[in-house]
């Protein structure tokens, strides 16, 4: 599998000389992102997500470690002509119109200007900004600015796109459009790297995610890998006489719903033991299901653990 991003042992410490303080933003971070995937980086504020993206884009410098984008070391700056970036709180030159903004950043990315202008028209139309293409960005609302920043990240037709809080300040329709565009880009073989703390967004669009805490990647995988088998099992059986009392004696957690007991089981071993015991009592089992946790519960559990 071709890799869009490869981070090896990245470390970064911010030092405030005058106050003698040190903040460890990245601690030996290593991970990869496959080409053509939508990858989500999750973590609480101050986890090091933005620092990680900035190091990958050379906006900040790592103390140690190496980053390769699209198979090329970031020391070779030519790779950035194939990379797009939507920063958090983007700020454009206020004297420019939306059209001029896209032309400026397209040209700085070294793209062919005919292609840049064609893409600029396309993205302004798609992101509902075409009507305001000749308006100065100083008059833009936060949502319009955010949509323009998204267009700016795509105007030079990059293969790898970093989006830092891409739906921040957008209305629900615009959020959906951003999600649709991300999916389309991935379908075209482009890689989308999303940095966010909005779990619902990540859950909806990402193929793989990584959880970050205190400068370290603490978990990574597909959403189903991260959420599956983590909530244990739920067994449903008819609420026959005496079963409630028996379950209570076994210290099992259960609830009575519509004439059935819903029994919560921590793992596969206890699920099998209960099945054997119920079958020995000649009680029929209605259903047994793997309880999937939400990404939110995984996030809270994993990141609150010391």
């Amino acid at each position: 599998m071709r890799l869009a991003l490869e981070a090896v042992s990245l470390s970064k410490t911010f030092r405030r000389w005058r106050r003698g303080r040190e903040v460890r933003a990245l601690s030996d971070v290593s991970f990869t992102v496959d080409a053509g995937a939508i990858f989500g980086l999750l973590g609480p504020n101050g986890a090091g997500k933005t620092t990680l993206v900035k190091v990958a884009l050379t906006i900040a410098h790592a103390d140690r470690g190496e980053v390769r984008l699209l198979g090329q070391s970031i020391r070779d700056r030519s790779v950035f002509s194939r990379v797009g970036y939507l920063p958090e709180n983007p700020r454009f030159p206020l004297h420019l119109t939306a059209w001029q903004v896209l032309r400026l950043y397209g040209s700085l990315s070294g793209a062919d200007m005919t292609a840049v202008e064609r893409n600029a028209s396309r993205w302004l139309e798609r992101l509902d900004l075409a009507r305001w293409s000749d308006m100065r960005v100083s008059k833009f609302s936060k949502g319009m600015n955010e949509r323009l920043a998204f267009a700016q990240a795509l105007v030079h037709d990059p293969e790898l796109i970093f989006l830092d809080e891409p739906t921040d300040g957008l209305d629900p329709l615009a959020r959906m459009e951003v999600r649709n565009i991300c999916r389309e880009l991935a379908d075209q073989g482009k890689t989308v790297f999303i940095n966010s703390h909005i779990l619902a967004e990540i859950e909806l669009i990402c193929d793989r995610i990584a959880l970050m805490k205190s400068g370290e990647i603490v978990e990574q995988g597909t959403i189903s890998e991260l959420t599956a088998s983590r909530g244990g099992y739920e067994l449903v059986a008819p609420a026959v006489d005496g079963l409630g009392h028996w379950l209570g004696e076994k210290s099992l957690t259960f609830a009575a719903v519509d004439g059935h007991f819903h029994v919560q089981l921590a793992d596969r071993v206890s699920a099998n033991a209960l099945i054997d015991a119920l079958r020995a009592k000649n009680i029929e089992i209605e259903s047994l299901s793997v309880k999937r946790r939400t990404l939110e519960s995984v996030f809270i559990e994993r990141l609150s653990r010391e």
């Binding site: 900035k54 884009l57 700056r77 950035f80 002509s81 990379v83 970036y85 920063p87 700020r91 970093f162």
Partner: peptide
Amino acid sequence: DLLLCRPL
């Protein structure tokens, strides 16, 4: 940020 992420 918008300038430093370019091939310059």
